[in-house]
Design a protein around this nucleic acid. Structure first.
Lengths: 156, 156
DNA sequence: TGTTGACCTCAGGTTTAGTTGAGGTTTTAT
DNA sequence: ATAAAACCTCAACTAAACCTGAGGTCAACA
């Protein structure tokens, strides 16, 4: 009798090369991810990596997270709470994607603030330490005398 | 008679430590920037770096560009068309900030697209190779049979 | 039964943006 | 005059996210 496939489908296992091709990452990257604990593999009797098809989803999730700017270490942490030996459920994906969507929002918000500041400063020629919003977030509280005018009045 | 200061103000030159403190970057970073050609320095008779006050503006501009995500090499390139020995004018700053504003826009747009896709995909549970917008930009044209359903229907 | 091509491990290299430290000189303050 | 603080160069190190290559094994196919 045929065994019930834990993946819920009659799916052959994949070699590292197949996973690479189908997921669009290099073989070396899969090795690297494994080393970092982002993915796992079984080995066949010849010591070659064999993956369940669910690896494709896992890699896809990793790549989406990367596109949002999440560093691998953080992705690893987020994925680490999920068991490696069962496919991600919709629930898992919901939790992850909501968290990451939050972070993505933050990133967008930061960049948008910067853009607005930049818009406000294009042409103003200030970039002064005391007043310019582009400088202050970094250069908090000048504690200096009347700072120099930083841009010349444009008389070449 | 007092020489006309090229900076247009009666400003003492700054040491590397002063620049570091006032611009908020480490001394080692200023050395590094100099090595990369982003900034220049004069030396006094004791071989110590001396900067005109306009260095502060230059460093500020570099930091703004970095915040928009521009790599140092590209910043160096953008700044390289401007002479090192005269302060940036409002015109210079306008040109730079407009270019960078464009790149920033692009970045924001990319992230926003991703966010919308993520929103559309939260809860959908697809992440399928053929259909999911989160996968396709990377995994262009599956050219495979009817791809597997990638997420389990959530029955733990 | 070869012989490719895919796979293995492990060490070391690459890039970006710096930081750290050793060993020595200059400046500044007392 | 002397000590401390700041500065100099140069080499090496860090971290992230991989890639490359050497030397050897495994699998598929004609």
């Amino acid at each position: 009798m045929m065994e019930k496939c834990p993946n819920g489908a009659m799916s052959r296992e994949l070699s590292v090369g197949e996973v690479a091709e189908r997921s669009g990452v290099a073989v070396s990257t899969l090795h690297f991810y494994e080393e970092k604990g982002l993915i796992h593999s079984q080995r066949n009797r010849g010591n070659q990596r064999r993956y369940p098809r669910s690896i494709l989803r896992r890699v896809a999730v990793i790549k989406v997270a990367q596109r949002t700017g999440i560093p691998l270490a953080e992705i690893a942490e987020a994925l680490s709470v999920l068991p490696h030996d069962r496919p991600l459920t919709v629930k898992d994906w919901n939790a992850l994607s909501k968290t990451w969507r939050g972070k993505l929002d933050e990133r967008i918000a930061r960049l948008t603030r910067l853009r607005n500041q930049l818009d406000g400063c294009i042409g103003c020629g200030c970039l002064s330490m005391q007043e310019c919003p582009l400088r202050n977030p970094l250069d908090t509280l000048g504690a200096e005398g009347p700072g120099p005018r930083l841009l010349e009045p444009d008389v070449p």
